[in-house]
Design a binder for these strands. Structure first.
Lengths: 152, 152
DNA sequence: CGGGAATAGTTGAACCATCAACTAGATTGT
DNA sequence: ACAATCTAGTTGATGGTTCAACTATTCCCG
């Protein structure tokens, strides 16, 4: 039960800016995707990961890890996406427990449309308003965070 | 309907690291606060803002803006906090529509306990694992994001 | 003053995430 | 081979968030 090592004033300020800014930014992206394309951020993320996978398909567990979602959440989200016709499930031949999530043509098209708008929002509210060197710093920093988290 | 200005490879990598890292980090903080102190991040944020206000109280609207929450969400969250005895509502004399959210003694004590653990998590998973200059960059960058968002 | 517009805050319903419990198939050890 | 255990994925209940609708009060202005 040692004394906590409090943040100093400048750390406090920077941390607070990050918390507030990222909350507001996520909110904005969420509303934007939802109103213009009927997708939540987590649905969007799923589509992105699938689109980057070979044959546009991934095993559920891999997809969950990839998109930083719990398996349960992925299952629900995937059902929603399936009922919208953007994804379909196939079962895996080699492992009868296994399920592939497969991006449909329609899903790919929806993603392409959404991505165009999305990248514009990301530029307009983050990338174009900060110093390029600061974006690199952000990448470095959160890369380190991921490495730290992965190790635990 | 112009061509979207896609991100280049390095922007893409940095942006992705940020998205993944911040999702995972928030998740971690959430679970930590919830298991150790029975508080969600948004409840915690409310307590923090109140603790920083004069007399430990704020008008609902101001508190909502401060904590980047919708009024509706604040209303619900506040009710929960109230039923836990951490906050109480007082109505405002000068504006009969107005309501003050007031941090209770118990609420302040709970916050103090939670903050000790919380700062440790933030250090261990972000501040202590990144370059101090990168933290400053993060602060600068998200400060700019907030400024951009505030202007819209 | 008085009536319309704006503001403060709450409420309930629908929606999404989380957690624990569950089914079914694979793996391991003896 | 077979029981114990582990992994893949789903499901349903619970609780938090969002959205639209609502009440009550204040502000604005002719």
């Amino acid at each position: 039960m040692s004394e906590p090592r409090w943040l100093d004033a400048s750390q406090q300020r920077d941390w607070r800016a990050y918390v507030d800014g990222s909350v507001r930014l996520t909110e904005l992206m969420d509303r934007d995707l939802k109103t213009k394309h009927g997708l939540s951020v987590s649905e969007y993320e799923i589509l992105v990961r699938l689109s980057e996978a070979p044959d546009h398909r991934l095993r559920m567990a891999e997809l969950a890890a990839n998109a930083s979602q719990s398996r349960s959440r992925l299952s629900h989200t995937c059902s929603r996406l399936e009922s919208k016709g953007l994804v379909k499930r196939d079962n895996c031949g080699t492992d009868k427990r296994g399920v592939y999530a497969q991006l449909t043509e329609e899903g790919y098209a929806a993603l392409e449309r959404a991505a165009r708008d999305h990248v514009e929002v990301v530029r307009e509210h983050l990338i174009d308003v900060i110093d390029p060197a600061d974006l690199e710093a952000i990448g470095r920093a959160f890369g380190a965070v991921l490495k730290r988290l992965g190790a635990s």
